[in-house]
Write a protein that binds this DNA or RNA. Structure first.
Length: 443
DNA sequence: TCGTTCACGC
DNA sequence: GACGTACGTGAACGAA
């Protein structure tokens, strides 16, 4: 697969993008080294504690007896052996978090906890400490490494710092601090991929949803679990957003999706907003087994594509067929994509690529604006659909104004293919507080 | 040294 | 109306 600029705008995006990202690379990110070193000690102690605990258990003893000095807590075949011989748990395939997490066994839970500690310690704490120069890290931001022409980041990777697990997130993100008197400010494009996709397929229903901030995820949640809209909680909405709507857009289908959605309600107790059990509600609606749930999800899938978004569905078919004839497709942002691709790739690449190009355009023009105004604010990184900056307190309001103007207004003057309003959400830490401290700024 | 597996992000 | 989730980086392990 090969992606090439096909016009001036495409070329300019890469040229100016490389320069702007280069400025951010030189700015660097301030790191609380002392905090990281303390975190390292803490994680090391926790790791030792868990290793001892595991060694004392039945499985740990067999492990030590069988493997002796070559015992590796990260060794997968060793773990597979112990699980089978000691606990009668015979796992054939993957031993990842998804599989082990479903096993109700204290030994297995300790193994997972140990994995988490080791990951945090080696990839994040040590990985970052090793890159610190005089209190700063200088991550690379690359434009030449990905097939879709998204970016990547390395040494250290600034784009996969833990955020979902609150405990690990606090340990690591507390080390990312602003320069003295500054705040860390992160601006995210809201639903940029869904919006860019809509610019390609122009489905009227989707355009209407996005123009009016209609809550599609909530409505899909009500359909998927067969409950009235008012019973949908944030948690249920999130499950459906991440396990139904997004997978659907990425080209997944009912068999995989139904499995995830079913697990979500059977492996933990989910409550509706009036305190009822979501699984009981499903059963009340005559969905008692997985196979009846699967049929139900199949119907929702069909309705989703053929009744709700038929134009989007047609676009996917036509885009794929055109590619098969021409063996390439062009993006709105000035690139031609050619070579062997699978269907899902043909449909996803232009969307993912163009969505990132919106971010990159904003990043470039924000860099230029800051320089022109001789501001002290520094862009320090970018995470696919968000821009992270180190902002002096007295430039905070001005920075947000410029950022909003460029990323939601000026970009639409430059690219007339953006037929929808773009929105950004801004989060910021307090002055002198870390990235972990960031809070939504309401304006 | 290199392929595989895992875990973190969007 | 079609057989099907996308994109990355890095660490540990273990065979070559």
């Amino acid at each position: 697969m090969k992606l090439n600029p096909i016009n001036e705008k495409g070329y300019k995006l890469l040229h100016d993008g490389a320069l702007a990202l280069g400025v951010a690379e030189q700015n660097g990110i301030r790191i609380d080294v002392h905090h990281l070193e303390k975190t390292y000690q803490k994680l090391e102690a926790e790791e030792k504690r868990f290793e001892k605990k595991i060694l004392k258990s039945k499985g740990g003893k067999l492990w030590k007896k069988t493997y002796g000095d070559s015992l590796r807590f990260g060794g997968l075949e060793q773990l597979r052996f112990v699980l089978r011989e000691c606990y009668g748990i015979d796992v054939k395939g993957t031993l990842d978090k998804g599989v082990l997490g479903k096993i109700d066994n204290p030994f297995v839970k300790d193994i997972l906890e140990l994995r988490k500690l080791v990951k945090a310690k080696s990839t994040y704490v040590l990985g970052i400490l090793n890159e610190v120069i005089d209190g700063y890290i200088y991550p690379n931001f690359n434009l030449h490494t990905t097939v879709t022409y998204r970016s990547s980041s390395s040494s250290p990777n600034f784009q996969n710092i833990p955020v979902r697990d609150p405990w690990v997130s606090e340990l690591v993100r507390s080390a990312f601090i602003p320069r003295k008197g500054n705040r860390i400010v992160e601006a995210d494009y809201s639903g940029i991929e869904v919006r860019v996709a809509a610019c390609y397929h122009k489905d009227p229903t989707m355009l209407q949803y996005l123009n009016t901030n209609y809550d599609m995820h909530k409505e899909m949640a009500a359909e998927v679990y067969k409950i009235p809209l008012k019973l949908v909680t944030k948690q249920i909405r999130n499950i459906v957003k991440n396990k139904f709507v997004f997978p659907m857009f990425y080209g997944s289908y009912h068999k995989l999706i139904a499995l995830d959605l079913w697990e979500a309600v059977t492996e933990q107790t989910i409550e509706t907003s009036d305190g009822k059990n979501l699984l009981s509600e499903l059963k009340y609606q005559k969905i008692r087994t997985f196979s009846s749930f699967l049929e139900h999800i199949k119907r929702i899938e069909d309705k989703f594509w053929f009744d709700r978004f038929p134009v989007y569905q047609n676009w996917r078919t036509e885009w794929w067929e055109t590619y098969q004839k021409k063996f390439y497709f062009d993006t709105y942002t000035g690139f031609s994509c050619r070579g062997y691709m699978k269907k899902n790739e043909v449909i996803n690449f232009p969307i993912q690529g163009s969505a990132f190009h919106c971010l990159l355009w904003s990043f470039i023009n924000l860099t230029k604006a800051l320089r022109k105004r001789k501001m002290k604010t520094k862009l320090i990184g970018q995470i696919h659909d968000s821009i992270v900056a180190d902002v002096p307190e007295n430039e905070f309001e001005e920075y947000i104004d410029i950022l909003t103007e460029i990323s939601t207004k000026k970009i639409r003057e430059y690219w007339d293919w953006i037929i929808l309003p773009l929105e950004i959400e801004i989060e910021a830490s307090d002055v002198n507080e870390s990235w972990f401290n960031k809070k939504v700024i309401h304006r």
